[in-house]
């Protein structure tokens, strides 16, 4: 039984990594949001499985919170924002997808090497997956660097948060409840502020392209 659950968690972890790559390769903003939703759903599944194996009731709560926030509320908000801003069919044009993916592979190898000695010390059933969580964080980081649209950058930011949550479940049995609630609150408030921001940016610059916005000098 334990073995099967272990396999399940590994499966979800690899799905998470796959989705990170899919996001990295995706040019369309609207599809990015769907991918982000799928990533959230995978996170919920993984957290629930760890909860079942370890009989830690607060993991169920954490899974429910993720479901509510990252599968339902935030994607809905993002869809609403891009509809109102009319950027639904926006496409990132200036990225070289193959090079980005190759860079992504290098990052994954780096993350695995970094996490290898540490994941063996973990007591969680999902210990093998710490490397994947770290890889996900780095891939989201790469996505934020390469994108020029504000919405894509925000999705990269949220995807990083997802991978961090996955790291918390895979390295430990999830953070203490009060911390998890606090993080969820921060994420929610953060996304609301970013939503307001996008409207202000649009009003001021007639564009949500960060390249048009960067005017302040680097000195």
């Amino acid at each position: 039984m334990q073995g099967m659950f272990g396999q399940l968690i590994n499966l979800f972890a690899s799905v998470l990594l796959l989705l990170s790559f899919a996001m990295l390769a995706q040019r369309r903003v609207v599809t990015l949001i769907d991918l982000f939703m799928l990533q959230g759903a995978t996170l919920v599944a993984a957290t629930t499985v760890v909860g079942v194996v370890t009989h830690q009731p607060h993991l169920y709560l954490s899974a429910a919170l993720t479901l509510l926030l990252k599968v339902a509320l935030i994607p809905w908000l993002l869809h609403r924002v891009i509809r109102q801003l009319n950027v639904r069919w926006d496409v990132e044009t200036l990225i070289n997808i193959p090079t980005t993916l190759l860079l992504g592979i290098v990052l994954v190898i780096f993350a695995f090497n970094l996490a290898l000695p540490i994941s063996q010390l973990s007591s969680s059933v999902a210990r093998g997956t710490l490397g994947i969580a770290l890889a996900g964080v780095l891939l989201s980081f790469l996505m934020m660097i390469t994108r020029s649209k504000a919405v894509s950058q925000v999705i990269g930011f949220l995807s990083m948060e997802n991978c961090l949550f996955f790291a918390a479940t895979s390295a430990t049995y999830g953070m203490p409840l009060v911390v998890e609630l606090g993080i969820a609150l921060d994420v929610l408030v953060g996304i609301l502020i970013l939503g307001v921001f996008m409207f202000q940016l649009r009003e001021r610059f007639d564009s949500l392209d960060i390249r048009h916005i960067e005017k302040l000098k680097e000195d």
């Binding site: 950058q153 930011f157 990083m160 953070m175 993080i183 001021r204 302040l216």
Partner: peptide, 26 residues
Amino acid sequence: AASLEAAWKYFILCGVGIAQALFGTV
């Protein structure tokens, strides 16, 4: 325009930075 740019930069840079601290806390 400049204050929005500054705030966006602040949010994204500090958001990413502080996410690393969360990983460290984990």
